[in-house]
Lab assay of single mutants.
Amino acid sequence: RSLKHLCRLKIRKCMGRLHLRCPVFMSFLPLPNRLKAYVLY
């Protein structure tokens, strides 16, 4: 697996499933929209 994929998995694990599904939580993250979309992919 690529480093990019492993990073996405780690971020998702740290955030938890409930936060990933909450659009309000995701909108408050201080991340560029492209990065938010990548994490959610």
Rank of each mutant, 00 (worst) to 15 (best):
K13T: 07
P23H: 05
L20G: 08
L9D: 12
L9T: 12
M26T: 10
P30H: 13
M15V: 07
P32H: 03
K36L: 05
L20D: 14
R21T: 07
R34M: 01
Y38F: 03
R21Y: 08
K13R: 11
H5L: 06
S27V: 01
L31S: 07
Y38S: 03
R21C: 05
C22M: 13
K13H: 08
R21N: 12
R17G: 14
R12E: 10
I11N: 01
L31V: 08
P30M: 14
L20T: 11
C22G: 04
L18W: 09
V24N: 14
C22K: 02
F25P: 11
I11A: 02
V24L: 08
R12A: 05
R8L: 11
S27T: 05
L6H: 11
P23E: 15
L3Q: 01
K36C: 03
L9M: 11
S27K: 11
L35P: 00
G16D: 12
R17T: 09
L9Q: 13
G16K: 12
C7H: 01
R34T: 06
V24D: 15
C22E: 03
L18M: 08
L29P: 04
M26R: 09
L35C: 07
K10M: 15
R12H: 01
F25H: 03
K10W: 14
F25Q: 07
L3G: 01
L29W: 06
M15G: 04
L31Y: 01
R17A: 15
Y38L: 04
H5Q: 05
V24C: 14
L18S: 01
L6F: 09
F25I: 14
P23Q: 15
I11Q: 00
F28T: 05
L31K: 02
R17K: 11
S27P: 03
C14M: 14
L6C: 13
K36W: 09
F28A: 06
H5S: 11
C22N: 01
P23N: 09
P30Q: 15
R34L: 01
Y38R: 03
L6W: 15
S2M: 15
N33P: 10
V24A: 14
R8S: 07
I11G: 01
F28K: 13
P32T: 04
K36F: 10
L6P: 02
R34G: 05
F28E: 14
L6T: 09
K36H: 01
V24K: 15
C14H: 04
V24M: 06
R1L: 12
N33I: 03
N33H: 12
H19A: 13
P30C: 13
P30W: 12
A37L: 03
R12S: 06
P30I: 06
L31G: 05
V39R: 00
C22H: 09
S2T: 06
R34P: 02
C22S: 05
H5C: 09
L35I: 06
L31P: 03
N33C: 07
K13V: 05
I11W: 10
L6Y: 11
L29M: 02
K13M: 08
L40M: 07
F25E: 08
L31C: 02
P30T: 14
K13S: 09
A37K: 11
H5M: 11
S2D: 14
C14L: 15
S27R: 11
L31Q: 01
C7Y: 04
L18P: 02
F28L: 12
M26C: 10
K10R: 03
C7D: 03
K4T: 10
G16V: 08
R1F: 14
P32S: 04
C22I: 13
I11R: 00
R34H: 03
L35T: 00
F25G: 09
A37E: 10
P32W: 15
R34C: 06
V39Q: 00
A37V: 03
F28R: 12
R34E: 09
C22V: 11
G16R: 12
L9R: 06
Y41V: 15
P32Y: 13
L18I: 14
R17V: 13
F25L: 13
